[in-house]
């Protein structure tokens, strides 16, 4: 999602009203609870939730870990948009005329308590597309002695899709995932494309057979909401369209994939770099001995 720089750098309203959608698993009660939080410049939604938890209500539950948009744990719906709580500024969502923010658990997931959602189905679907490199040479795969060759151009074909942090925001915004339980979802399909596009992988046919089934790839209708909400610019919508194009060619038996070979490591293959012509070797001086000897002036004094 493109960042609105003007909005994120301005000062938020002094006090912001937070409407948090809560769920009690023991009674099954769902309600909106209101908290008034004093803000400061640079405050994120996660900071506000932590402030509520430490100062106002200790029973509020939410999931977080890194606080810097790397782990993908703190996905919540802020004012109707799936966002990472740690990457969303309060100033971006609350204005002076309307100092209110609604925080809900992620859509299309099962809620366990308050803002905590169950990712079991999400990971099951991710597992179904076999998210790992599969090679025919099993021995080399399990105990590698050599390396798989891959050019920077080949890497750039899938690098963008390998940045996924599995936060689930794409699945929360997908209108097809909302109504179809069998649909794999943008995250799993983008990862399927990531491994099919990887030249080191050899089992693309196995994955394509799985993706050719009813309810897998063909259910996507390019609403592109997944790409719009993705905090890591993974662009799942484009990945799914490429995947479908590959499937189309595969069904016509026109799809050919380049698979990389096993090569020795670069350092073994490369010749040692020769010394420049102006370099002269001083006689009777061994570099190895020099390294072992203690320096005349101790390093501590040199720093002083």
């Amino acid at each position: 999602m493109p960042i609105d720089l003007k909005a994120v750098t301005r000062k938020p309203p002094e006090t912001v009203r937070f409407y948090v959608k809560r769920f009690d698993p023991e009674t099954g009660r769902v309600w909106w609870q209101v908290y008034e939080v004093k803000t400061y410049r640079g405050m994120t939604i996660l900071d506000a939730l932590l402030k509520i938890k430490s100062e106002i209500d200790h029973s509020l539950s939410f999931r977080y870990s890194c606080r810097m948009g790397v782990c993908g744990s703190c996905g919540v719906v802020v004012n109707g948009e799936p966002r990472l709580a740690c990457q969303t500024q309060v100033a971006e969502k609350a204005t002076v005329s309307k100092p209110e923010i609604r925080v809900e658990p992620l859509y299309n997931f099962i809620v366990l308590r308050d803002l905590i959602t169950d990712f079991t189905e999400f990971f099951e679907k991710h597992r179904r597309i076999k998210p790992y490199i599969i090679r025919r040479d099993l021995g080399e795969r399990e105990k590698p002695t050599l390396e798989y060759s891959q050019s920077p151009e080949e890497l750039s074909q899938y690098y963008e899709y390998s940045l996924c942090i599995m936060c689930g925001l794409c699945d929360a915004s997908c209108p097809v995932y909302a109504s179809d339980k069998l649909f794999l979802g943008p995250q799993a399909l983008a990862q399927a494309y990531r491994f099919i596009a990887d030249t080191r992988d050899e089992m693309w046919a196995l994955r394509l057979e799985e993706l050719d089934k009813e309810g897998s790839t063909y259910k996507c209708h390019f609403a592109a909401s997944c790409s719009y909400v993705c905090p890591k610019v993974v662009d799942p919508a484009a990945a799914i369209q490429r995947l479908r194009s590959i499937l189309f060619k595969y069904k016509l038996r026109l799809y050919r994939k380049k698979v990389s070979n096993v090569v020795p490591p670069m350092e073994v293959k490369a010749k040692p770099t020769p010394l420049p012509p102006e370099a002269t070797v001083i006689e009777n001086v061994s570099l190895e001995k020099l390294e072992e000897e203690k320096p005349l002036i101790p390093i501590d004094k040199l720093i002083e």
Binding site: G80, E81, D118, S179
Partner: peptide, 17 residues
């Protein structure tokens, strides 16, 4: 547990974006 799935209404309303 609470099923937060939006259902068919997500196909007719711009929810989430």
């Amino acid at each position: 547990v609470l099923d937060n799935r939006l259902g068919v209404k997500a196909s007719f309303l711009p929810i989430g974006v």
